[in-house]
Design a protein around this nucleic acid. Sequence first.
DNA 1: TATTGTTATACTCTATAACTATA
DNA 2: TATAGTTATAGAGTATAACAATA
Lengths: 175, 175
Amino acid sequence: MVEIATIEGVGLMVRGASTEQAGASPRKDFPIAERPGYLLHKAGLVLVEDVEKALGSVGMRIRDFFVLAALAGGPELSQQDLSRLLNLDPTTVVTVIDEMERNGHVERRRNPADRRRYNLFLTASGREALATADRVATEVESAFFGGLSADERAALHTTLGVLMAGRWPAAVCSD
Amino acid sequence: MVEIATIEGVGLMVRGASTEQAGASPRKDFPIAERPGYLLHKAGLVLVEDVEKALGSVGMRIRDFFVLAALAGGPELSQQDLSRLLNLDPTTVVTVIDEMERNGHVERRRNPADRRRYNLFLTASGREALATADRVATEVESAFFGGLSADERAALHTTLGVLMAGRWPAAVCSD
DNA sequence: TATTGTTATACTCTATAACTATA
DNA sequence: TATAGTTATAGAGTATAACAATA
């Protein structure tokens, strides 16, 4: 059995457990792990795993967090708005909001100006859940980015902003 | 209808299409979009989407690319090795390798030292497919990171390396 | 005629359990 | 007794199509 090495120098290597089998020492490159794209992809996955795990301890999924956060802002969103903002299928939004309405976190209120739509309203309970999720997520983020200096964090934030500029869902809010 | 703004200053805002409805101008914060964690998560997703789309044009999925790349290196991996390296369920590996064997990209060869295992062998056709996928992925990466200077790219790469240090699957290669 | 939300349904993906052959 | 691979199956997640209400 062989342990995988941490990323160092040129990147990730799978290398032999030299302590156990001196002669064997199978070593294997996994070159795409050196790619910035693969690293970015993997870092996003690992972070989400961390957040999912932490939110699980308070009975929440990461998507619930996103939905609560989306509904916490200014004018109330419709389900279609939410669908576009979070890149969720409209039928998925039905299920998600159904559950949140059962939880008492969200209320559907008919939009008087367009009775086909609901305005999704975050209840006090929903705001509490959001505050909890926000605290949990902040803790995970702090740990995840803990190895970086303040300057490195700021630079990362700026860089990610550049990468994502203009790459958000096009239409989000109705009216 | 309202368009979403690109990330600027404090972060993402959904704001009114002021050209159409002067008075309405609904404005909505989506504060978690300012989080470095959310940006990282979203950037990873968008990049993967780009790669999936580009690889689709050559009849490949991104996971095929990862598998081909993993098998291209030194000593041949078993299905369990691949499972650990790419964080795939062993039963999923069966399906993936089945398909790749039908494609002629991979061959299962019994490991003589342990006849329970296969050594997964990448054929010439598999290497061609890998070369194609590598070229496609490189083009997408170039476009995705195109807005960054060489220094910014290097800094991002370093930072991602720090974040991922020690966060890879523990055991990967057998023997 | 188009859009919002809904339901039913199918499809994909993944995970679980049981089995075999090997160790 | 444990492990590698396989199969069958169940479950979650998501997407598709059709529908009712409203614009």
